[in-house]
């Protein structure tokens, strides 16, 4: 299948990626070529075939033991911006709301 520019913009929004106009054009072509290739899967008869589930083993569970959690400073040490014990990001709510 071929992706249009608006398809790419929709997926870019879902992916939280701002794409430039030039990127959108180029990527629409590249993704269409890849999708047309992977669509070769359509020629496989899949009636009654279960999807791969990865490991057949039961889910391994961690022991339920109390452990030290991350300290605030540890968690914030790499943050591009912080305010006291918090990650700081641009304002989400407008003033007065």
């Amino acid at each position: 299948m071929n992706l249009s520019k608006s398809d790419v913009l929709h997926v870019a929004r879902l992916s939280a990626l701002a794409l430039s106009e030039a990127e959108v054009d180029r990527i629409a072509g590249e993704l269409s070529a890849i999708l047309n290739y992977v669509e070769g899967l359509s020629s496989v008869d899949l009636s009654g075939i279960p999807a791969e589930e990865g490991s057949r083993l039961p889910t391994a569970l961690a022991e339920d033991l109390p452990v030290q959690s991350l300290s605030t400073d540890w968690a914030l040490a790499g943050a591009p911006d912080r305010s006291g014990p918090f990650f700081q990001v641009p304002r989400i709510l407008e003033e007065g709301r």
């Binding site: 790419v8 997926v11 870019a12 992916s15 939280a16 990626l17 701002a18 794409l19 430039s20 990127e23 990527i27 590249e30 993704l31 890849i34 999708l35 990001v89 641009p90 304002r91 989400i92």
Partner: peptide
């Protein structure tokens, strides 16, 4: 300008072409 823009522009400027291609795909 705002939070959404921060996510989108950070990821656009921070990731290279192949990584963006695979995220989109």
């Amino acid at each position: 300008a705002d939070l959404r823009t921060m996510y989108e522009e950070t990821r656009d400027a921070g990731f290279g072409d192949e990584v963006k291609r695979r995220i989109l795909l």
